[in-house]
């Protein structure tokens, strides 16, 4: 399964052996062929959404309104 990762920029991670074994059991019969693929999926899910940008934009809107009113 191609997870869309750039293999040239790949980094090595060290995980406890028992966790890798448990993950290998977990992915049996699924389309995840390796623990790396599973981990990549989970990390992509975790990093795919971030509300920080929206919050910065909302702060900017309020600051502009206060400036319009002459209070900032």
């Amino acid at each position: 399964m191609n997870m869309g990762n750039d293999i040239n920029s790949a980094r090595e991670l060290r995980l406890p052996g028992h966790l890798c074994e448990a993950a290998e059991q977990l992915i049996k019969g699924t389309r995840f062929k390796t623990v790396e693929e599973l981990l990549s999926f989970v990390l992509q899910e975790l990093t795919s959404r971030n509300s920080a940008q929206s919050e910065a934009e909302e702060r900017k809107v309020i600051e502009e309104r206060l400036r319009d009113l002459g209070y900032l």
């Binding site: 919050e55 909302e58 702060r59 309020i62 600051e63 309104r65 206060l66 009113l69 209070y71």
Partner: peptide
């Protein structure tokens, strides 16, 4: 009510900050 508006806008900003 510009003053009231500004006070609540400030509070909203403080909430986000």
């Amino acid at each position: 009510e510009k003053l009231a508006r500004a006070r609540l806008l400030r509070w909203a900003l403080q909430h986000l900050h």
